[in-house]
């Protein structure tokens, strides 16, 4: 692995967004993910390699550290921001098809429910593992999910709900998705739901945490 790729990977792992960002203190004044991605492209490193060898492995390490309680969410968010800065530079390569993501993941909190802290974490981890994520926000209707799937054929869908009175809406959403596009895979999560409920409503996967769903998605993609 080139020195540059290694450095870029570290920037993402430790949340160094760009040269001006004060975080983390020990990397103050150094180039960040933004500059190093530009430099890598300039040096002719393949854009797909930048994603797969620098960014994704870095987020993978971050995810592991987080699941082992070795870092807090703010550090993870800074890493996500650093990855985001690199993605801005890489965007044209995604558009042109030079870089292929693992797939598209559509996520939202089902209608009637406004809880989104957990959903946001899940979205961030999935993005970090090399998927492109469409976050529909909270209080999302069945129609909105179905419409977004139509615009993104082949996408996998994630539903979140935190209330016992809205988890039932997952059934309606899942049904609507399966009716409109039977092959679309649906994964669910949120404090009140479990595996049994997942089976009952005809969803394809339940994960109690972001790590679980990332593993499931990566199996799907491979």
């Amino acid at each position: 692995m080139s020195e540059l790729i290694k450095k870029l990977s570290e920037c993402v792992e430790f949340g160094k967004v760009d040269k001006n960002s004060p975080f983390p203190p020990q990397m103050k004044g150094q180039d960040g993910a933004f500059e190093l991605t530009e430099q890598a492209l300039k040096e002719g490193i393949d854009s797909q390699a930048i994603l797969e060898e620098a960014l994704v492995p870095a987020m993978d390490r971050v995810g592991k550290k987080f699941s082992e309680n070795k870092i807090f969410v703010p550090q993870m968010l800074m890493s996500a921001k650093a990855m985001g800065a690199a993605m801005v530079v890489l965007k044209p390569y995604f558009m042109s098809g030079d870089i292929k993501t693992k797939g598209t993941f559509i996520i939202g909190t089902v209608f009637g429910d406004l809880h989104d802290i957990g959903k946001n974490l899940v979205a961030m981890m999935i993005e970090g593992s090399g998927w492109s994520v469409i976050d529909l926000g909270v209080d999302v209707s069945s129609d909105k999910f179905v419409e977004t799937i139509k615009e993104n054929p082949g996408a996998v869908v994630g539903l979140s709900a935190l209330l016992t009175t809205t988890m039932v809406n997952m059934e309606e959403v899942t049904q609507a998705i399966k009716d409109a596009s039977p092959e679309t895979k649906v994964t669910i999560g949120g404090a009140p739901v479990n595996d049994d409920f997942c089976k009952k409503i005809g969803a394809d996967n339940y994960s109690p945490d972001p790590q679980g769903v990332v593993e499931w998605l990566n199996k799907l993609a491979s």
Binding site: T164, T165, M167, V168, N169, F197
Partner: peptide, 8 residues
């Protein structure tokens, strides 16, 4: 207290 799993 709150409702069990159900819609209103």
């Amino acid at each position: 207290f709150t409702l069990p799993t159900m819609s209103i």
